[in-house]
């Protein structure tokens, strides 16, 4: 087992605990041990608090990183926003004069940032530590033929020099992760577009989401695979809002990748919290029945 410190952030553990459940269920099956950190705070978020005071934002982010440094572990994140904050902090604090300033702040609470813990987005753990083959082998319920539209979101990929996850112009990690479950990934024509959540002028995100949802719907995918909890909100609750606002019938159910992985690894549909979504990926149930039928015919 390879050990990584877990940075849960705010959105997933409070609003989407089912996503956290899926992470805690799936990673150990792939040889990754999750080490919980005591006393983490918000990363802090790269949109709101960073807009107030970037220096304080850096200091709090550096404090979070010192918690992993104390354990001598690299840290992994499950939210693209947390990854953005922590990776950017790591990158900025390679500048020793800025690190000195941040450490003067940290001195107030008896801490020091050393830059010894690297930040890994959870998909890079799957790709680089577990590997696609191990994921394929962990699947007991292959999602044969399931058409999964992919939306990467912005912060997973950009800025690529800082995030170091994948090629922002032609990423592949999500496609390969979906294929490892036996499903068929689909790239929709607006795959590069932002979900607009951070924008504070209401009509802009609505129009963006309208065009995004239209592009996803054109692909006639069974579900939409996501890796960012903020995008998830836009594609679930937001999908209902935008449908109503524009008088259109958008209806592709979104799913966070780790819930899909947990399902493929055998967690019953009803244990995944999917009934809490506005758009429920009920189409997954067919694989439950298929797997049950296959295993009963094997035992006969």
């Amino acid at each position: 087992m390879k050990r990584y410190a877990f940075f849960p952030g705010c959105l997933i553990p409070t609003r989407h605990p089912a996503m956290e459940f899926a992470i805690r269920h799936t990673l150990p099956k792939l040889g990754i041990e999750i080490v919980d950190l005591e006393g983490t705070s918000c990363c802090p978020d790269p949109i709101y608090f960073k807009s107030k005071d970037k220096m304080s934002w850096l200091a709090v982010a550096a404090r979070n990183l010192t918690l992993a440094e104390e354990q001598g572990l690299d840290i992994f994140t499950n939210c693209s926003g947390c990854t953005a904050t922590l990776s950017e902090t790591y990158h900025l604090l390679e500048d020793m004069s800025l690190r000195e300033k941040v450490n003067q702040r940290l001195k107030r609470i008896g801490r020091e940032y050393k830059g010894t813990s690297k930040i890994r987005h959870i998909v890079t753990l799957l790709r680089d530590v577990a590997g696609y083959d191990a994921i394929r082998e962990s699947v007991v319920r292959p999602l044969d033929g399931l058409k999964v539209a992919i939306h990467y979101g912005c912060h997973l990929l950009k800025p690529s020099r800082i995030m170091q996850v994948d090629d922002p112009n032609d990423p592949s990690v999500m496609e390969r992760l979906v294929e490892a479950l036996g499903a068929v990934p689909v790239r929709h024509r607006n795959w590069y577009l932002c979900c607009g959540k951070a924008c504070q002028r209401e009509d802009i995100p609505s129009n963006m989401m309208h065009d995004l949802l239209g592009a996803v719907q054109e692909e006639e995918a069974d579900i939409l695979g996501l890796i960012c909890p903020t995008c998830f909100g836009q594609f679930d609750h937001g999908q209902m809002k935008v449908s109503k606002q524009f008088g259109e019938d958008f209806h592709t159910p979104p799913i966070y990748y780790f819930q899909l992985l947990a399902f493929a690894q055998g967690v019953p549909y009803d244990k995944l919290g999917l009934e809490r979504q506005r758009f429920k990926p009920e189409c997954l149930r067919q694989f439950e029945t298929a797997a049950a039928a296959a295993s009963s015919s094997e035992t006969e």
Binding site: C154, K158, P159, G196, K197, Q200, I204
Partner: peptide, 10 residues
Amino acid sequence: ECTNCYNCHE
């Protein structure tokens, strides 16, 4: 109005 997508940074 900025969406913080980081495309400009890229």
